[in-house]
């Protein structure tokens, strides 16, 4: 899991490098990517569960964007637009959003989202 954050002291540099990582991960042709947004105890628990369903698979990648400024302008809307309550989106191999999850998602929901993005 890649945790992307922005430090106050190096805001611009962190945002730049984080955007690069995000772009590289999202555009990878052999990865199923989950992007998590926001912070808080609920999101942390969610991220733990998501890691459980990602770690055993080398092609699953999770990027946790802890600071909304990391998203390029308009990118968060592209990823989460119609799902304001969602804390995570799973992208398919082509990088298109496939499934959205809210913080209350269970392990089953997370696995189902990954499988949905990977399968037919």
């Amino acid at each position: 899991m890649r945790v992307l954050s922005v430090r106050a002291a190096s805001r611009a540099a962190d945002i730049k490098s984080a955007r690069a990582i995000l772009a590289e991960t999202v555009g990878h042709p052999s990865k199923t990517v989950m992007i998590i947004r926001r912070v808080g105890p609920e999101i942390t628990r969610f991220a733990d569960k998501a890691g459980t369903r990602s770690d055993p698979f080398p092609w699953r990648e999770i990027v946790w964007v802890t600071d909304q400024r990391i998203f390029r302008p308009g990118q968060e809307d592209e990823l989460f637009g119609a799902h304001p309550d969602a804390c995570a989106v799973v992208l398919d191999l082509a990088g298109h959003p496939a499934t959205w999850l809210d913080p209350s998602a269970q392990l089953f929901d997370i696995e189902d989202a990954f499988l949905g993005a990977e399968g037919r």
Binding site: H28, S30, L93, F114, L115, G116, E118, R120
Partner: peptide, 26 residues
Amino acid sequence: RGGAEAGPVFQERLQTSSTTIRRILR
């Protein structure tokens, strides 16, 4: 076999296995 650059064969296999597993779990 394909490493991080795994190509169409991997994608085809992934589609197949994930579809089967999802059908079972659901």
